[in-house]
Amino acid sequence: MRTSALREQRHPTLTPAAIGRAATLALHDELSLTPKPGLVTLIDRGSHDDMDAHTFMRSLFSLRRYFVQIAEAGLAGAEFDVLERFGIAAEARMRAATGGINTHRGAIFMLGLLCAAAGAVLREQDEAPRPADLQRALRRRWGDALAQRSQRTSTLPGGIAARRHGLRSASEEAALAFPVLFEAALPALSTALARGLTPQQARLDALFHIMAVLEDSNLAHRGGLAGLRFAQRTAQAFLDRGGVARPGGLQEAHAIAGEFVARRLSPGGAADTLAAACWITRVCGGS
């Protein structure tokens, strides 16, 4: 009896409300991290003149109900067009909260899909999902629809940049069930935590791992292909030198952040992917 109660306490049954709350917390995990190269933090604007932490907090609060709602849709077995309608409505609420500024469009898409996938997993099992369960649910439930969506001609800045430079777009990344998230970001975050890094250090380390491999269309939009490759090389070199855990690593990360601001680069896709990894560690029982 005691063993059963303990197991239940460690792996409580998830609900759509808990899934959605984890998404809101994960977005705050990402916002509160510093130094983030070119990205908005609680203390600076990064490479952005039109937004700051207050803008992000207004956006974040406007999305709280959306993440719960889309998890409920996944639990109910909703088709992709239903999820897409929820996402469009969420973006409208975000823009109303921010005065038209795009703070979380990528997260609405990525974290929304993941919340729906977690809801879909709840239909089949009571225990906390594993990352592989989430990926399978994405492929099984909405893989075909996401593949079709990835063939649309995007009119958004990131999609236009991806097409211009022959990069894998955010839609194509989703159609593949987010390989960078599951194969790079999450292992990097988990490994860093297992090595004894603090949650902040681990998230920063994971962010650089993501930047090193992601074809981030936000970077390509702001800095062209040269800007994207500069960001990838810089991130990989930082990791090759030992990353945030080495002596002087945090100071170097601050210096890199300054370089990104000077070049007006902002790895928004990497930020969304980091938030998604933080969400998975919460939903799947990580720290």
Score class of each variant (00 low, 15 high):
R10H: 09
P12I: 12
P12M: 06
P12G: 04
T13N: 00
L14A: 11
L14Q: 07
T15N: 12
T15Y: 14
P16T: 14
A17K: 12
A17L: 14
A18V: 04
I19D: 06
G20F: 05
R21H: 12
A22P: 06
A22C: 11
T24C: 13
L25C: 04
L25E: 15
L25R: 11
A26N: 04
A26E: 01
L27R: 02
H28S: 09
D29Y: 03
D29P: 07
E30I: 04
L31F: 07
L31Y: 08
S32V: 11
S32H: 05
S32W: 02
S32I: 02
L33V: 02
K36D: 03
P37S: 12
G38Q: 02
G38R: 06
G38W: 05
L39V: 05
L39C: 08
V40M: 11
V40T: 15
T41Y: 11
I43V: 13
D44C: 15
D44W: 06
D44G: 13
D44R: 10
G46I: 10
G46N: 10
H48V: 13
H48E: 13
D49M: 04
D50W: 04
M51S: 03
D52R: 00
D52I: 02
D52V: 00
A53T: 00
H54S: 00
H54N: 05
H54G: 01
F56A: 04
M57L: 15
R58C: 10
L60D: 07
F61Q: 14
F61K: 11
